[in-house]
């Protein structure tokens, strides 16, 4: 089935109905394998067992960025090609991306407490992630402010693309800001190369998270299409009542 065939919402629904159970099954299997690998992976010689938090922290950071990338492509799809599924994708992805970014922040702060002695430091990476989270919340707020879905989609698409351009600039300036203020109690045990025994489980975990993300986005897109059908039917009901 070509990608263009999925442009028809009914055909997409059929595809999603078929694909979601399979995807969910594969996700569960890969997750089981990844968790097992993460559990038997050796501890870091400096950080000890807390390195296990990395298996959650890094994949959710990765998904937080991947999701904004997906939303940017969808935004182009909305503005340039008027692809019917583009704004559905963008709307479905936003809360999921926000949730994974939040998970990244929470795990980062739980990792920071034993390592740095405080839940939060204004470390460059964590701070950029926080700004990304704020941008996700702004996008969700914008979706929830405009009533007509196609008008909301265009406004959100512009915001998403501006965000995509601004995010690297934010990252750069936060890095600059952070090195400017050396006084912060940030002490990173970086520099050491990560051993393959830790790296391989991390890759498997990232794969499991990505599968989970794809499944969730597909399911949320299906919900969004159904929600628009409900809206259309309700409009019919309202105009039939007049």
């Amino acid at each position: 089935m070509a990608l263009i065939d999925l442009a028809n919402p009914s055909r997409f629904l059929k595809f999603a109905n078929g694909a979601i159970p399979w995807l969910a099954g594969v996700t569960v299997l890969v997750f089981a394998f990844a968790l097992e690998q993460a559990m038997i992976a050796p501890d870091d010689y400096q950080q000890g067992a807390t390195v296990k938090i990395m298996y959650l922290h890094v994949p959710s950071a990765w998904l937080g960025m991947l999701c904004w990338g997906l939303m940017s492509v969808a935004a182009l799809g909305t503005l340039v090609w008027r692809h019917p599924l583009a704004d559905v994708t963008a709307k479905a992805a936003a809360p999921i991306g926000a949730a994974f970014t939040l998970l990244c922040l929470v795990t980062g702060s739980l990792w920071g407490r034993p390592e740095w002695g405080t839940y939060w430091v204004w470390d460059a990476r964590l701070t950029s992630e926080l700004v990304l989270f704020l941008l996700y919340l702004a996008v969700i707020a914008l979706w929830n402010t405009v009533e007509d879905p196609s008008r909301a989609a265009r406004a959100v698409a512009v915001l998403t693309l501006v965000g995509a351009i601004d995010l690297p600039i934010i990252k750069f300036s936060v890095d600059w800001w952070n090195t400017l203020h050396q006084g912060a109690s940030v002490f990173r045990v970086g520099g050491s190369t990560i051993y393959p025994t830790i790296l391989l489980p991390l890759f498997i975990m990232a794969g499991a998270f990505t599968l989970l993300f794809i499944t969730l986005v597909l399911a949320a897109m299906r919900n969004e299409i159904l929600r628009r059908r409900v809206r259309t039917l309700q409009l019919m009901q309202a105009s039939a009542a007049n």
């Binding site: 707020a141 009533e147 800001w177 006084g183 109690s185």
Partner: peptide
């Protein structure tokens, strides 16, 4: 289009911006 939770978002943004202005000195 309602205003609930918008206040919280504003609150979060304002608090986040202040360390950028005064530095990350804990």
């Amino acid at each position: 289009g309602g205003s609930a939770l918008m206040g919280v978002l504003f609150f979060l943004v304002v608090v986040t911006l202040i360390p950028f202005a005064i530095g990350p000195d804990l």
